[in-house]
Write a protein that binds this DNA or RNA. Structure first.
Lengths: 234, 234
DNA sequence: CGTCCATTTGAGGTGGATCAACCCTAGTGG
DNA sequence: CCACTAGGGTTGATCCACCTCAAATGGACG
């Protein structure tokens, strides 16, 4: 769904490569839904680990799609508390706003390359093409759907339920059967789940001790029993 | 913004009044954005206190606008835990989905009357009229905006910050200068803020003791110092 | 004027936060 | 190829903000 917004058929111009730009291979998706209609110019760009892509309340000039790597969208509180609203993985569209500004900041979690189009050109096309307008709505509706589920998690789930939920979400979205290679550190996971990094670590250790998951490196995780994990999520 | 989606100019048919139907007087808003274009048939309907409007995962057949009263949208966890995602007050549009089903349930908090249109007819109009399509997107984007702020609250704010935030939100949205008449009980507030009703009550008592707010009945609140409340929100 | 909830208030318990070592391991440079 | 280092991760000990359980109070409505 999200992956249909930006098109590979568009003219991809390599602007920069502040580091390596891994081969663009989003996911198995039928692109061209938009660029099929119009010759929307998409550009590729790369960000290094921890580089800011845009800041909170910054004018929303571009819409992005992750080609490779991973991105975190977050809000900050004065005293340094952070809430990550979403992780964006290859194929995901992010930074799409209906209003004028980005409401969360975005940073590359690891070296990341993105495809981007000018928001203005997208809006222009949407003003003509109802299909495109529909797709913009759908992208935002998907984000809302995720946010609604996440509010339930943040407001009412226990630490173990949150971590189990996180693992299942990543398992589904990283979608590499078997090993799961998490791009983010424990602090990111904590800030996503409304927990501290220590609590995340303890929950993972407990799941490991119960044989529900296996490690091969802190960020290389194998789920050994999705069913039990699902039960723990409530 | 939200209030422009449904139009008073549409044909309002009184279908039922399971109780009284208070005078429709949404807010000061310029309707007709949609019904100006097409003769969308809007219907009025009333729900009694605690009556379900639709359930979670139920097919999304209608889009609603609160005329009078108040509505809570929520998700439940198996063991009875509840997270209220939003309160809908007069003028607010709710129940709009891009997909097939409602992702949260909705109930009247007090006796409530709503205006509603068939989602299918709205979709049909949106398929022709880009303005309407844009408006649907904007409504969903507003909900997402609220959800993003609420994730920050649920994940990272203290009890006092949450309650202060809630009071300021209600003050802004109920928008009756001076007295604020809350339609919802302490449990609803707690389930909205990810707290227990006791914690909400204690925070309100503390704000009262500090002279930041005044009571005349548990749900009749006067904010005496919005600035201090805003500081407490962080 | 009594009944029934909603709300408040109190007392004590606890899940997760905080503070503090310690331990890995990937990356670096010799 | 190996020793060193730094940052990420784990684990332990203690604390505390909020939850839970309980009881008293209040207010709306018959």
């Amino acid at each position: 769904m999200l992956t249909q917004l930006l098109s590979t058929k568009a003219i991809n111009t390599q602007i920069t490569g502040s580091k390596v730009a891994p081969a663009p291979h989003p996911v198995s998706d039928q692109f061209g839904a938009i660029a099929g209609h119009v010759g929307l110019v998409a550009t590729e760009f790369s960000y290094r680990k921890d580089e800011e892509i845009y800041g909170e309340d910054e004018p929303a000039e571009y819409v992005y799609q992750v080609i490779s790597g991973a991105v975190r969208s977050y809000k900050l509180l004065s005293n340094g508390r952070r809430q990550i609203g979403a992780f964006h993985l290859p194929g995901d569209v992010f930074g799409l706003e209906s209003g004028a500004a980005h409401r969360l900041a975005a940073e590359a979690i690891i070296d990341t390359s993105v495809r981007l189009v000018k928001r203005a050109s997208l809006e222009k096309v949407a003003g003509t093409d109802v299909q495109v307008a529909r797709r913009l709505w759908t992208v935002t509706a998907s984000e809302l759907h995720h946010a609604e589920n996440h509010m339930l998690l943040l407001g009412r789930k226990t630490a173990m339920e949150r971590v189990a939920n996180f693992l299942l979400e990543m398992d589904r979205r990283l979608a590499v059967p078997g090993m799961m290679a998490l791009p983010m550190c424990r602090r990111d996971i904590g800030d996503y789940l409304g927990l501290t990094l220590e609590t995340v670590s303890r929950a993972l250790s407990q799941l490991h001790a119960q044989g529900i998951l296996g490690f091969s490196g802190a960020r290389q995780i194998v789920l050994r029993n999705r069913q039990r994990l699902h039960n723990l999520d409530t």
